[in-house]
Amino acid sequence: MGKYIVRRLLQMIPVALGATFLIYAMVFSLPGDPTTGKCGERNCPPEFVAAFNEKYNLDDPLLVQYGKYMGNVLQGDLGEAQSGLPVSEELSERYVITFKLGGMALAIEAVIGILAGIVAGLRKGGFLDALVLVSTLFVISIPVFVIGNVSQLFFGIELGWFPVTVPFEPSLFDLFMPAMVLASASVAYLARLMRSSMAENLRSDYVRTANAKGLGPSRVVGVHTLRNSMIPVVTFLGYDFGALLGGAIITEGIFNIYGVGGYIFQGISDQDGIAVVSSVTVLVVIYLLMNLLADVLYGVLDPRISHD
């Protein structure tokens, strides 16, 4: 197991390098002039442009720029955004909030998705199963920005249950509605995954054996079926956490949350390569680590998978 983890960590290096380079290249190739608007309602004087380009290595070829940037990152310096603030400072504040949001969304996804999946899978073709299938299809079909804006309007303004936007230092309650919105599509996918996993395992031979052993229904379902049905679900949750952090960009925009998403969005519109690439690099690394965690969990849950 230890060897496996080390090998996976080593494999992450080329993946992280490749991912950051692609992002760097994409920001680099964005059309437009990064100094636009930096000097009020006029073009910047040539001296400013020259100094600006000098400071951010913008005159160098792409590879050299990237090399210089990565050299700093490896020394723990994520660079300075165009605003003049160090990226690492900004990110450390913002990641706390984004993590809170993503973590809440993951918890909501796990609880609701698994419960709904169990209820549906236990009686395939029954009323609750149909309810889960129809409601999840409904949620999957609607884009997240529509769900976000509609719930903002309905639960925030009409009913007044939740704050419409999220304050600068949000409490868990403030983040509840955004987390629900962020989790919505994932809940639907997870419920369906759990449902089919349950239904499939209930028909399996070892469940028949469990019945033949004279075990009660709660043990047959709760121990023998559930444990097997959870294998794909837990793995999915692990992979999905990274996706939730990425998906937070839209949700954070809707609810005006001071998180990483907003920072990346701002960075893209400002063509602030350093800010975007540094934020995304951190996302990439988190995503890779979560994937590794999910794979390790897979081996723990399913003894047939060996990580030696």
Binding site: A212, K213, G214
Partner: peptide, 22 residues
């Protein structure tokens, strides 16, 4: 259920799928 197992029990054809893998 009190009969099933203690009084009458059963073995199946394919033990690999009939035993719980986890």
């Amino acid at each position: 259920r009190k009969i099933r197992g203690p009084e009458i029990s059963m073995i199946f054809q394919d033990a690999l799928s009939a035993l719980n893998p986890v």
